[in-house]
Amino acid sequence: MLRWSAQETGRTIDFSGIVDTTVAPGIAGGAELVALARAAIGHDVDAVPAQKVASVIGPDAAVRAAAVAGAFELYNRIVDATGLPVGRVQRERLADVVETLGLDEFPHAGHGV
């Protein structure tokens, strides 16, 4: 989805910015959005990283980013709980992203192939 959106809208994304905080993803607020998403996974109940996002790309975007982070905490759980397969075609289409992000190291990497 990320690569599709970027390609179709003429944006250039550096996927390594997802896993390496020293690399800017290359979109407005990219580093702040990655920081917010990382905070979503962590357990720091005092963190309000959305304020950093808001300072760069606005409060409405910050709230939506927080919502998306919540949504993917949901999606990740329901697909891993049900063994939803990733098909061979999709894997092949995303081979470069899989390599950049190291996805083959993940527990369910081989499922559905």
Partner: peptide, 19 residues
Amino acid sequence: RTQIEVVATTVSHGNECFY
């Protein structure tokens, strides 16, 4: 949408969710 997917991809990566 591209910013949305940066958030989505980062969360999924942090959860080690391949899908």
